[in-house]
Amino acid sequence: MFRNNYDNDSVTFSPQGRIFQVEYASEAVKQGSVVVGIASKTHTVLVALKRNAEELSSYQKKVIGIDEHFGIALAGLASDARVLSNFMKQQALASKMTYGRPIPLERIVAQIGDRAQTSTQVYGKRPYGVGLLIAGVDETGPHLFEFQPSGMTQEMIACAIGARSQMARTYLERHLDEFADASRDELIKHGLLALKESLSQDKELTVDNASVGVTGLAQDGKRKIESFKLYDGGEVAPLLEAALESAEPASGDTTVEGESMEVDT
């Protein structure tokens, strides 16, 4: 059997210039259930498909609020995400403590990017097996960032990562022009519909398997931002209803059949 000699650690290049451990880590992201993020001029949403590993277990946490002004959605190893989210929480609190300001998103994303990069260049370390979408609002407005195990980070208008996320991305690309001026409700709707595209045929969005996280600029003027709000369980019902209702007429798309939904590990 063929054995790859260049994938035992993350510090050795293959002759083709690849670092296999990092690529394998990216595969872990693709195994995770899909998460979608979209940013408008006023809001950002994170939408996630939660899976339960087995009937008896609870559903995995997919969207985590980090600070008042931002949250993350994860695809891949949930435990790796927890480590990163703890780190981000610490950094966010530290920024509040030392400067009295919410940490700029660009800054916190660069920090986890640098962390992840370190584990691709230090012997004995393992890259993070998780991809993140970081969404929130800071002084410069709403932002959505994508984070990959390689340490790659980039700002996005809309993004989907995880299993079968291509379908969600296709939806996002098709509706790209509508996002910038979308209202809060419209943005959530787009998020849920994009997520729906990625479902396998035998699945549908329910209050059990969908999570939504929203942040935005505040409308009421007293405060500048609308705190990160996580919709889970029963709270998702009205959002789902609104989204699916609007989608009923145009159900022309056919989803690709094939592999069953993957489960987070």
Partner: peptide, 10 residues
């Protein structure tokens, strides 16, 4: 980073 600057309060 771009666009962020510390004000007097910070």
């Amino acid at each position: 980073s771009e666009g962020h600057s510390l004000n007097a309060k910070n």
